[in-house]
Design a protein around this nucleic acid. Structure first.
Length: 97
DNA sequence: ACGAAACCCTGGG
DNA sequence: CCCAGGGTTTCGT
């Protein structure tokens, strides 16, 4: 059956979003790094999904989350990776795009 | 460098 | 209850 939904997202996602929101401006981390932060180093997949769900767009800077290699990865929100690159460039000029 | 498999979570039928 | 997907990651060749 479906898991108990706290709000629009589960406990797992809640932790993910909290960590993402804690990401300092101009700073980017990988999905795996974030997964480790929430205590699920093997849940890098779910982390990416959580961002994809993004229950609160604009509040969750999922664009700050990139691949382990530092690559942009992707972007589910409007604008696509194009918007994501722009945001990363704006926040972190040192970002390699 | 490229290709394929793995692992964890969520949503729909 | 069962199946499939996803913005990744890692190993093997």
């Amino acid at each position: 059956m479906k898991p108990e939904k706290i709000r629009d997202f589960t406990d797992f996602q809640y932790n993910v979003f909290e960590e993402i929101k804690k990401i300092p401006k101009g700073q980017t981390i990988s999905y795996k790094q974030l997964a480790e932060k929430i205590g699920r180093p093997r849940a890098y997949r779910a982390v990416a999904n959580a961002c994809g769900k993004n229950p609160e767009p604009g509040i969750i800077p999922c664009h700050r989350v990139v691949r382990s290699n530092g690559d942009i990865g992707g972007y589910s929100l409007k604008g696509g990776v194009n918007k994501k690159r722009k945001l990363l460039k704006t926040e972190n000029k040192n970002y390699l795009g």
